[in-house]
Amino acid sequence: MTTYVLDGVEALESEGIHVLREVAAEFERPVLLFSGGKDSVVMLHLARKAFWPAPVPFPVLHVDTGHTFPEVLAYRDATVERLGVRLLVADVGSYVADGRLRERADGTRNPLQTVPLLDAIAEHRFDAVFGGGRRDEEKARAKERILSLRDEFGQWDPRNQRPELWSLYNGRHRPGEHVRVFPLSNWTELDVWRYVRQERIELPPIYFAHRRRVFLRDGMWLAEGPWSRPRPGEEVAECTVRYRTVGDMSCTGAVLSEAVSVDEVLAEVAASRLTERGATRADDRLSEAAMEDRKREGYF
């Protein structure tokens, strides 16, 4: 029997495709932020579906902290190759190397991504930037529009946002301004995983349980590596872990998990008592307003 109702994830997919097509039609130079993280992977998957059988009509941009998991970099390269999209890389490491940015005392580079991102937007004159941000991730994001204006300095003014009505998106902007676009605004972490299962989307292997040498810091399991060395008193152990988000290796925590398949991960996410950022992102714990302050300056 035919039903005439979309279930939750189908409705979200249709909404996301609608947003991608609106922006591709109304902007001259869009770009899609692609980190190899699951949200950006789902967004790129939607873009492929939105324009099929034509190719994705814009390039993708990775703001690489230089602390990216090697498995994620390999995945990124294989994916853009398979889809035939053009990959641009904004390299945080080169900014640190030549002194345009200074390494932070805690060694994490997530907050350093803003300047290379804004430089890339200016250099390529991008007027629309697709991000995989979801409103359920964090309180400041909960107030973000689907199309969200940035001034010529890349700044977000959360107190002065345009009303966003029906599904009529207003992308008007003046020269030098650009618009951030969030096609996954209304998705939750669970929706993303359901969609990954439904569409059989391949993800970087670190999203699934694997053995890794880790140590405990501030209640988070950090990978032992060149950018995250245990301090005295922090003991390294080999554990079975997976990641809920992929970011800068030095501040992205793993969770202890035996989930090796999408179904098992889904079951775990559904039962989880911690938010994905609370569990795994040291940078968002800095303060109540950490994310809002970074977003105002032009962060993702």
Binding site: A140, A142, K143, P158
Partner: peptide, 18 residues
Amino acid sequence: GLRAEREQGITIDVAYRY
């Protein structure tokens, strides 16, 4: 959700919840 709201104890913008 927003700093200004927390400071003033009022809500000034639509927040989406799931």
